[in-house]
Design a protein around this nucleic acid. Sequence first.
RNA 1: GCGCGCUUAGCUCAGUUGGUAGAGCAACUCAUUUACACUGAGAAGGUCGGGGGUUCAAGUCCCUCAGCGCGCACCA
Length: 717
Amino acid sequence: MDERLLKPYDPKETESKIYKLWEKSGFFNPNNLPERHKEFFSIVLPPPNVTGTLHLGHALEDSIQDMIVRYKRMAGFKTLWVPGTDHAAIATQSKVEKLLEKEGIRKNDIGREEFLKRVKIFAQNSHDGIISQIKKMGASLDWSREAFTLDEKRNIAVKTAFKQMYDDGLIYRGNRMVNWDPKGQTVISDDEIVYEEKKGKFYTFKYGPFEIGTARPETKFGDKYVVIHPDDKRYKDWKHMQKITVEWINGPIEATIIKDEMIDMGFGTGVMTITPWHSHEDFALAEKYKLDKEQIIDKYGKLLPIAGEFVGMKIGDAREKIVEKLKEKGLLVSVDENYVNRVATAERTGGTIEPQIMLQWFINVNKPIKERGNKTLKDLMREPIEKGEIKIIPEHFEKVYYHWIENLRDWCISRQIWYGHQIPVWYRKNEIYCGIEAPTDKGWEQDPDTLDTWFSSSLWTFSTLGWPEKTKDLKSFHPTSLINPGYEILFFWVARMILMSQFLIGEIPFKTVFLHGILRDKNGKKFSKSSGNNIDPVEIIEKYGADALRMSLISGTGSGNDSNYDENKVKGYKNFANKIWNITRFILKNIKGSKYDPSISNNLTEEFKIIVEDITSDMDNYRFHLAAEKIYQYIWHKFADEILEESKKIIKVGDKQAEERKSALLLIWNDCIKILHPFMPFVTEEIWSIIKKRDKDDLIMVAKWPFGLAQDKPEKK
RNA sequence: GCGCGCUUAGCUCAGUUGGUAGAGCAACUCAUUUACACUGAGAAGGUCGGGGGUUCAAGUCCCUCAGCGCGCACCA
């Protein structure tokens, strides 16, 4: 009897030892896999942000992906799982800014270079912690191919991508309405906005012969256009472009009446004034009728000279004072105190977004691309899903995806932050140069802005494989087989990867998008540092083992569904790990001295084969949670509770039937351990080593899936 | 407003192409040192959110209502 089996299973002792064994084997790298691994299977790890440490949500993601990767590897695929981390531009920068604030340092005091040094140190620390966390999960990532969204190679990819899109006129610089975050002092994309419902006041003012409503009186200084619906009978006597003089905040102004169908006649009085500089819709209207646009608020959220006596005031402070003045002038009609406003805030800094017209860089999603039969980037994003080249699981997210594309505006990619890929564009007076390298002659200055972090992550499936170089990896492993992000980054990441891959290399980035849900705490609350419910996976691993954690996260939740984390469940699977440990002890004890016949076939093995067929079909059809529960049920309640109990009597007799039973037990148990391996890799590898007692190369991680049932060919289209 | 989900045992959730309702945890009754107490045996627990429809047959498909969650959107 192996000494290890004499005491209960101890994951702590086993896991780090086993992980080292795996790393040493080299099998994480597909190049080192034995001959039988032919067809390629590839997947990239959604790179975690280097903003701190991983939480249980990442553990869920790692568990699912490693389970799939291990299954595919056993099935005979030449399997690659690419690791990496994301520099997460704004998120990381604002994190470091906050840390420096505590030391009383502001980033402008130390300057760009010194600040970036600090960020780099922070990012490196985060990275190291994250990698060690991922390894503790048992993730079989090929570390020799590790990448970072901001490393040298990815920088070349980013610049190459930018230039290609710039040359094709898809990236342009223009004065457009953008989302300005006064707190983060940068613009952000539409997708980085989080809307919060806030109760506020809704004011109605007299504006000449009209009454207009607004929730933001502080933007109204420059309002000199009155918009009315052309069909509104109440105002039928007013003509389009008619000019009137009205008394307003700082005296009389000349206003112009605009008749346009954008107005909702049923809302308020059916009349509104517009502020083209600080509102997306107003801007669109102003463009349509070539109206003047005036800036009211500066980038610090303060009022400009147009505000007259209110100049320099913060908009929040100015609001009530402006209302007061209007009231004194007899222009205030009413105040609705129960108005619910949807306030746009910045995802990362929490700042209240101020729409502004600014000179920024954009990706044009509506421009017909000549070389692609006049298709737009929107078309390139939509088509692979429509044609079924990319499958989204669960399927209903396809509708969500289309819906997003329909509403998509040009993607603003420039950011006024320091941490990130600097835009590869140089200016000299009126000249502009875009290139991989800086121009060599004098007088050029590079654009100080950096790129949206999602620009670099959207190249991830091919930038990690060597693009823009034509590498062997790229040829072998792209398009990748599968991607497994949470559904919350379907737009941020998945959609943009499809966009970039389609445009830059003319192929899809992955064949299947398998989305997972969000893991919440026991009470259904989102994990976050601020609510103090954050859990470090390592903490749980030390208590129950990585196997138990993995199994508890995978089983019991349908794909794409949110789930609640329950420590009791982990505890249950720790018991399960010990159960299979004891089963192994029982079997080895009982088969001692007997000859093992691997060709045995009887009722037990036939019945087992049917179970394995069922489980394998679940594995091949993304029903992993079912596969996990089925193998658990079989092992504990069929194999242990029934078959082993019954075997005790049979083996006691010591006849031919007993010998056959012993062989059947060993055969079935061997295969049970294999099937369980993708879910609980550590304990199964340890048991394998005890059963096999062979040399180091004979690892369960490269053992063949039972009965040759798993597909070793790519899925049929 | 538009879109997408969810509602199944006390709790947390599974339930694949429609074919007699499942698991884990909790609670209940027994077994008491067995490969395993990180255990075993057993019993209990559900008109599958309400209503209607299709079908020989509906938790599953269709319609409708309600509650909850999420995403998107230009209600000034």
